[in-house]
Amino acid sequence: MTTRRTLPWGPMARMTGRRALFAVPVLLVVTFGVFAVAAASPFDPVKAYAGTAGLTSSQANLDQLRANLGADQPLVARWWDWLTSALTGDLGDSSVMRQPVADVIVERLGWSTLLAATAFLLAILLGTALGVLAARRPGGWLDRCASSAAYTLEAAPAFWLGLLAIWFFALKLGVLPAGGLTDTDSDVITLGQVASHLVLPAAVLGVSQLPWFFLYVRQGVGDALEEDPVRGARARGTSERTVLFGHALRSGMLPMLTLVGSRVPELITGALLIETVFSWPGIAAATVQAALAVDFPLLAALTVLATAAVLAGNLLSDLLYGLADPRVGFDG
């Protein structure tokens, strides 16, 4: 079973290329939309840049500043300027972080990826395991408990879960740190520190994503268990283990695979809340800070970045689906 068949690299690469071409107009529209919203809003880049000094400075100074920032130009010109300089890697300066936007992203992207990947892995593994167990006995006590818990978790806001987790694990039991990346008294980032600080945010983010994976696997495996191949395998006397993992899980996992990529927007939403609750120094927490301080360059860059992540997630789910089910193919 090892190298029985090689991956269809050619069609996969073609699909990736097609999607990359489609992503260009989408990203262009999104960036333009971001600039259009900013232009329609009462937000004034000159006042934001000058801060409190803007209240006392003369009109001539403000006009000079406006010209320097390019804010006196029409919308399309500003958008085009931003776009061309973004392509050379210059995304402007963030006023709230006091450093170039590109540096903020490079510095924080890794931490967000670590958090999101851990949470996603947790949700997929735990969701699959629970889903298979629940699907084995539909209507059993495990199925009922896990399904009720899943619906409740779907309805619960992630930030609320995070706060309660802090209260219970950090304050009541005192076993895990309540937030941040390292303890307050240390400046060095060590592996052990990061690992212990990662547990709570990753667990809460993972648990808030868990219900969808669980319900999909439960549904998929439950359906597969009632189909003819499973009945045939049972009639042949195949062991329950092989039936469950070889037959039911393989076809029941299909709907879940599409979920892996299409949950990226929800993952970003969850990260926005969880990173804020746990003061995790990631890119989502920076987004919230940028929004609170109306830091337009940072906010615009991060919105575009999130859109790109969502498009990549859609591509990933289609690739996985094509790989798992050859009938679907790579034509999308």
């Binding site: 989408v26 900013a38 929004a291 609170l292 906010l299 859109t307 859609n314």
Partner: peptide
């Protein structure tokens, strides 16, 4: 296509952006 474009921006992020711009 426009609907697809809209849905490729995470909802809460778009909400945050609009609220941040309009106070």
């Amino acid at each position: 296509r426009l609907v697809d474009t809209f849905s490729s921006v995470p909802h809460l992020l778009l909400g945050i952006f609009i609220v941040a711009m309009f106070r």
